[in-house]
Design a protein around this nucleic acid. Structure first.
Length: 434
DNA sequence: CCTCCACCGGAACGTGAGGAGT
DNA sequence: ACTCCTCACGTTCCGGTGGAGG
């Protein structure tokens, strides 16, 4: 077993630089974002003229280049300011990671050499500290808040104080750039913050397939060794990603994973087959993540459909069958079952997540119901479900053993005293309603 | 054309957790 | 520490319904 690593190193022939294919990398040149770059730059030049730039809100779905563009413009601005001899600081922070008011302020103050403990101070003291730190001389401060929507949920007080900070400063000028992928985010904002924060707005449209192709080509040139990419690889990656609302991040992931798969197969060239495999794997990972984070009841419902899948002679399942099975499962692991009403809601939720297919159909004489079928692979999904300790005790084998007649028996709602048996309403209708 | 199945799905209500206000 | 409010999750109740079969 000597030389495992040497061997692996030798087989690394596909990537030139894997890191440029990761979403975190900001390239020198951003294709198809010229307009946005100019737009933002026009707003920010004010900083170089000693004025206060307008605050700016940027919207766009994931992978539309928001962060990359803003970071890029920020860097350019800093460089231009340095050449010109103006004091200008661009502070970037991601509100998903830094998610409390205290930490936001502490993070902002740190680059100005202020020692602020990780915790312990009152928040307004940190705020004062930050204010004093930047106000020591004339300077422009651009604060970039990535994923601001995450911050709102924890209270928008910071945003409020930051948006009015200029009135408390003598020398420095602060402007805020907020980045959000939630278009409706502004509606949840305090009106006072809304007007000042959204002085300017900029929406980033998704990329189309052609634009994605350009982006991929640019990165591929840097990331892959020459001649390792097959003909159709880039167009295919672009096409797949364009289907998913033009997400460049997705496109890059796809391309990188394709390369990794090719590498694992010890092949020297990436082909379309690898791309398809990569697409499947990414999709699988997504499903696994969704399934894993499902509430237990939904997991049980999903497991019921898995167990019943294929047992009813190729027909799709009905709500009643799934519910019946679900109750059995509940009983055997000692959980109180939800009502059928609730389960129908959870079923449509699973449908929305793309885990099952549930379509309302009428079977005439045989009533109206949902036709349910799985749209995920049985085996891998089952193994994800089994990670849940509450389901762990149930194996398919046990379930079949315990309930051999699965799927053949129909659940009849047990009527509470006042409840009329099914079909009774129709009878009553004959007599009129009063 | 009418019936009647086996559910659908809206509405109102109950409950407990968690956050804001005081 | 306290109340009050909101919100997510569930239940109860019940009218509604597409279409196969009579």
């Amino acid at each position: 077993m000597k030389g495992v690593f040497e061997e692996l190193l030798k087989s690394e022939q596909i990537f030139k630089n894997r890191d440029v294919l990761r979403p975190a990398y900001t390239p020198e040149d951003l294709p198809h974002r010229k307009e946005q770059i100019e737009n933002i730059a026009t707003i920010l030049v004010a900083a170089l003229r000693g004025e206060t730039p307008s605050n700016l809100l940027i919207y766009g779905k994931t992978g539309t280049g928001k962060t990359a563009v803003v970071k890029y413009v920020g860097k350019e601005l800093e460089e231009a300011a340095e050449r010109q001899g103006t004091a200008c600081a661009v502070l970037y922070l991601n509100c998903e990671v830094i998610d409390t008011q205290y930490r936001v302020l502490a993070h902002l103050a740190r680059p100005f050499n202020r020692e602020i403990p990780m915790t312990g101070w009152p928040t307004d003291q940190v705020y004062t500290e930050f204010k004093e730190a930047i106000d020591d001389r004339e300077r422009a401060v651009i604060i970039i808040l990535d994923e601001v929507d995450k911050l709102i949920k924890k209270g928008d007080e910071v945003l409020y104080s930051l948006s009015r900070i200029n009135s408390e400063l003598n020398n420095a000028k602060v402007s805020i750039i907020g980045i959000s992928n939630d278009l409706k985010f502004i509606e949840f904002l305090d009106p006072r913050v809304r007007s000042s924060l959204g002085e300017e707005e900029n929406v980033f449209p998704p990329y189309n397939a052609d634009q994605l192709k350009d982006i991929l080509e640019q990165r591929a040139a840097m990331g892959f060794k020459e001649g390792t990419l097959g003909e159709g690889v880039i167009p295919l990656c672009a096409a797949f990603a364009a289907q998913e609302h033009g997400d460049a991040r997705r496109a890059l992931d796809l391309m990188r994973v394709s390369g990794e798969i090719a590498e694992r197969h010890r092949e020297s060239r990436v082909t379309e087959t690898h791309v398809r495999e990569a697409q499947d794997r990414i999709e699988m990972d997504r499903i696994a993540e969704v399934v894993r984070t499902l509430p237990t009841q939904s997991k049980l419902i999903l497991y019921s459909t898995i167990l019943l899948d294929g047992t009813v002679g190729g027909n799709d399942l009905t709500t009643g069958e799934v519910y019946n099975m679900y109750r059995r499962l509940c009983r055997s692991i000692d959980m109180t079952p939800l009502t059928q009403r609730r389960v129908t809601d959870l079923l449509s939720e699973l449908d929305m997540l793309g885990i099952i297919n549930a379509k309302v159909v009428s079977r005439g004489r045989f009533g109206r119901t949902r036709e349910i079928s799985l749209s995920v692979p049985v085996e891998s999904t089952t193994s994800v479900l089994m990670e849940d300790y509450r389901l762990n005790t149930l194996t398919a084998h046990q379930a079949y053993q315990a309930y051999p007649k699965v799927g053949t028996e129909h659940y009849k709602p047990i009527p509470p005293q006042s409840r009329l048996p099914t079909g009774a309403n129709a009878i009553l209708n004959q007599f009129g309603k009063n």
